[in-house]
Design a protein around this nucleic acid. Structure first.
Lengths: 146, 146
DNA sequence: AGAATTTATTTCAAGTATAAAATATCTGCA
DNA sequence: TGCAGATATTTTATACTTGAAATAAATTCT
């Protein structure tokens, strides 16, 4: 007789939260110390690095799963640092396209290398098979992919 | 020849972030609509419900893995709502013990029931074996348990 | 064309979060 | 005893986050 399903699910959720917070705390500190930057900024740069032609504000907030207003502020600060630029979209004067500047692309490349290393350490306990298992399971959690 | 280990680990991390944000968005909204409350407040109540004798501020922030100053603010608001109370610890005048009020315990009980239901829906795709797998894997992620 | 609606983004108010500085208290030890 | 250092918490400054309201521009429907 095993534990009821709802309790098991709750347990998974709580454990996931805990692991996540712990890893994020490490990342946050590392980003701050090595790059004087933050996790949200890294996330925005990362999305823009993946979409080199740029993204609209709304696409950015959808990809990051955060509110529109939130992205406005982060992009503003990144623009202030010269890492991203906002350009008008022609054909739609409501929209703004955000993309990496050359400086931003270069900066992100350094951060991404370090970031991959930190994650690699945090998840060093897992071998390839286990990682595949995790991917398969996590892909079925929540709705669609990243 | 499979993908290199560091990339696989990164993939797991990104997928976990994505799933988490999606689920949290749902929980946040549900908590707001049904209880006019928030996730951080729920987390604090949850910890206090588990430790009925109360917790010190520092124990609370350690369990929740958030900063001390953060907990100060959330507890302040919960105290304003009459859901928690702060009492002096005798033998140490620096410390504060926080615990649920009867109203807080009652309120939390309602919230917890609903919360379990929401999580149960969000993770409805998984059966018992898969949940056990997830637990085992997640327990090895980051450092120690919750 | 002109009004109503929808879409894209920003602004706003309130709450959440961190790191660092400030307080207050406690503990260990010369 | 008295003080140096450690501990518990709050305060402060700044950043992040949300949901809702406000703008502004595009689209739809007569």
């Amino acid at each position: 007789m095993s534990r009821p399903l709802p309790k098991q699910r709750l347990r998974v959720w709580l454990r996931m939260l805990s692991a996540q917070r712990e890893i994020e705390t490490g990342l946050r500190e590392a980003l701050r110390l090595k790059f004087d930057s933050t996790l949200p900024r890294f996330d925005v740069l990362s999305a823009l690095d993946r979409y080199r032609d740029g993204l609209r504000m709304s696409e950015l907030s959808a990809k990051l799963k955060v509110s529109n207003g939130n992205v406005t502020g982060i992009v503003e600060r990144l623009a202030g640092e010269g890492l991203v630029e906002r350009v008008a979209v022609d054909g739609d004067r409501r929209a703004m396209l955000v993309r990496l500047t050359p400086a931003g692309a270069e900066r992100f490349a350094e951060m991404a290398t370090a970031h991959e290393g930190w994650i690699n350490e945090q998840l060093s306990a897992f071998d390839s098979d286990e990682l595949e298992q995790l991917i398969r399971l996590l892909e079925r959690m929540g709705g669609e992919n990243a």
